[in-house]
Design a protein around this nucleic acid. Sequence first.
RNA 1: GCCGGGAUGGCGGAACUGGUAGACGCGGCGGACUCAAAAUCCGUUGGUGGAGACAUCGUGAGGGUUCGAGUCCCUCUCCCGGCACCA
Length: 816
Amino acid sequence: MEDAYRPATVEQAAQDHWARTRCFEVGEQSDRPKFYCLTMFPYPSGRLHMGHVRVFTISDVIARHRRMQGYNVLQPMGWDAFGMPAENAAIERGVAPAKWTYENIDYMRGQLKRLGYGYDWRRELTTCKPEYYRWEQWLFTKMFERGLVYRRNAVVNWDPVDQTVLANEQVIDGRGWRSGALVERREIPQWFMKITAYADDLLEELERMSGWPEAVKTMQRNWIGRSEGIELAFDVADGDQQLRVYTTRPDTLYGVTYMAVAAEHPLAVAAAEGQPALQAFLRECQQGQAAEAALETMEKKGMPLGVDVIHPLTGERLPVWVANFVLMGYGTGAVMAVPGHDQRDWEFATRYGLPIRQVIRPTDGRDGDLATAAFTDYGLLVNSGEHDGLDFAQAFDALAAKFEGEGRGRRRVNYRLRDWGVSRQRYWGTPIPIIYCDDCGAVPVPEADLPVVLPEDVEVTGSGSPLQNMPEFFECSCPQCGKPARRETDTFDTFVESSWYFARYACPDSDAAMLDDRADYWMPVDQYTGGIEHAILHLLYSRFFQRVMRDLGLSQHAEPFSNLLTQGMVLKDGAKMSKSKGNTVDPQALVEEYGADTVRLFMMFAAPPEQALEWSDDGVQGAFRFLRRLWRQVAAHVAAGPTEPLDAAALDEGQRSLRRLVHQTIAKVDDDIGRRHSFNTAIAAVMELSNAVNRFADGSPQGRAVRHEAIESMVLMLSPIVPHVCHALWQALGHEEAVVECPWPQVETAALAQATVELVVQVNGRLRARIEVAADVDKETALAQALAEDNVQRFVGAAAPRKVIHVPGKLLNIVV
RNA sequence: GCCGGGAUGGCGGAACUGGUAGACGCGGCGGACUCAAAAUCCGUUGGUGGAGACAUCGUGAGGGUUCGAGUCCCUCUCCCGGCACCA
């Protein structure tokens, strides 16, 4: 064995071994239980960044640990290859998106291999290839047949100068990123997937998903936003029209003092005819961005339409206002305003001098003063005629029954979740397989004509999609009647590709079907790891697609991911690493300087996976130093010659003590990696063991046997984290079999036994002494021994203890 | 604005189910080795007082529950993620 640790040669040798033995290529014939370990696949942006290294290392450690525990582990890798950056590169540098993407993939694949991840590369997926997206197009046509997709108008960010649709991130301070023009909201026809048809199922199943973090489940619950309320029609005065609204607070109905409608609402459009001031305001409402955060934070403005509605209970006339915060696309495009009991309505009413009426009285003695804010809690009805004195539930039932009897309203479950708009007016994406025929309407492309291939040789200008200028792409004939027709030039949202790739890894080469039997063997994913930023959209869309695939008979499973780990970001100087901030650290340079193992070790040691990780160059040095120390430790042990077998019964106190630590550490590391995913504490525990071995000076035959067990255990325990150096060290320890094929070390319970333990002694909850007691000591004995301590006596004094709390094996608290 | 999360020494973090605050690592300081430096090794390292034993303060801020709170509850501050066309 070499004296010095040389990562470059060590890592090359280990990677050659894995490639030669193809040990990460797995099939479905196995007597081991399956374990499917997956990370969110990367966008091929050009080079790996530290965030990638972090998430892939987390997953690789889990996969290698499971493998040692005897599972048939699948860990695949692929590329989420469609998306805007490729178009941006095309605009800026004139390189075709396809060429740019494939070159990035080639480079990044090399980087992944250099980092030593245990992937089954035969299953690599690239979503911009027709073999992949044809099945996505196929699924869309099946959803079309089942009525799960439809077309309607929806709002986009419109750049009036570049004449193009902008993504939210391309709008900076309300202006187009390239033109600088003020962005407008514009409605265009788009395709939608009916995720709302699964809203209740997606919501309810969360209750049973014990392997997901509570925070993610809470966010999804709130996103789906199930509410129970009443849909109610107000009669428009002086006419036969009705204004429909939905409310979850029918108990506040007597407090309605005005109505608010969206600028696009028919009532507003009709009222604006011949009223230039109102028309100007409606135009103003269409300015600004489509993003909800922008809408919610903008100044709330409105104007009266000069139209009244009749209050269905009091017969009072209520003015209808148009307001910029009410959106036509959500709900009915109209809301009833209760300024006394809704804060946004309160602010609007205060601004425009509209009446504020109290109709709910607090039940806990508060005054509920409406002069400073709305009172939004539940309470008892007042100023509500015959309904005075009812509580929320009673008022809800009474009013629902009344309106249902009159045919004016009905109880309704409503969701905040909206259907998924999948149309994008972009080039670099999966073509939507639809043909528009003047006679037959929107017709899905027949299965035999799939895939609709995206032309790769195009010129991207940044103004609209190149597909719109390519007759050879969009000119076609109607599949139904054969007449000349026009192909859809919009492409899919890239979230569509990432909503089913996890299942496709099971059968990436299947050209007869989207999924086959192999998907049922591997699915669901046992461990899914990715960024918390995907907590809602990607994970909800994937849950939706998995259900659609189940309902089409492609899978038996409703849920795609059994266990979810959401990892934090990698920061430097407290900020997310980004080119614009100039605070990036290139993984490639570090791998070249220290080796992959050092980078992996630092990543796993610096922070628990869910938390943000603060980058530290010194910390990387420390990780490298530890590996070098480990190397020397093994080298010194090996150089001292072979050891004799361990005889557990013949050990002295010092030997038993080190051996106890070995088995305690195995138990802790197994739990830390396998259950808690607390890799940083697992590494700390092995470091402590390594320090203890260094201090252990016993050169006797049994002393060396104990040290041998400790060192072999350390190498096995570290091998999921730093697999290359452990591959070399395991060989140096004289093993024929590679460490990657070794089972996880077993805890020997007998080695954990301990005759005495340290007990912390507190007086009135404050630490005053530590005593050594028998492991099974009773309370009285422990108390007597504690009272014999000088420092305990000082604080207890002559008084008799009022109360004694004994936590066996931990603490004794004397209360005086 | 709404939803979710976070805040512990000089720094990254540990404390898993309410029971020893600061494991492990980095950095600092002192020492050994060396002509010297690097590397390595040993010791030490939250603040204050004390020679020490030890005492006392201390987990973003303020309050509360408890024999005991970093951990539970209430109020607040700041930071991060998401908000449906970034991925």
